[in-house]
């Protein structure tokens, strides 16, 4: 019981692996959220207007926005 826990300043390989786990699920969550949120909005508008185009636009916009967020959060150097 001598240690106060790992040294947070030192690079920790195991810690990196954990970060990877969380990042993987975070990226997955962003893409799914993008499609669900804007696809959902598109679906609602489509339902009101009786026109399928808004759903398509919503799904695509949501997908690209989600992918952009993944790049923004995790993909930049």
């Amino acid at each position: 019981m001598a240690t106060d826990g790992p040294d947070r300043t030192a690079p920790d390989v195991r810690g990196d692996a954990r970060k990877g786990e969380a990042d993987a699920w975070g990226a997955f969550g962003l893409v799914v959220s993008g499609v669900l949120v804007w696809g959902g909005v598109g679906w609602f508008v489509s339902d009101r207007l009786d026109n399928r185009l808004p759903l398509l636009v919503g799904l695509l916009v949501g997908m690209f926005a989600g992918l952009y967020l993944v790049w923004f959060r995790y993909g930049r150097a």
Partner: peptide
Amino acid sequence: LLAPIEFFSTVIV
């Protein structure tokens, strides 16, 4: 475009 996605992914997903 992005804020609702971030909110949804953190609080719901």
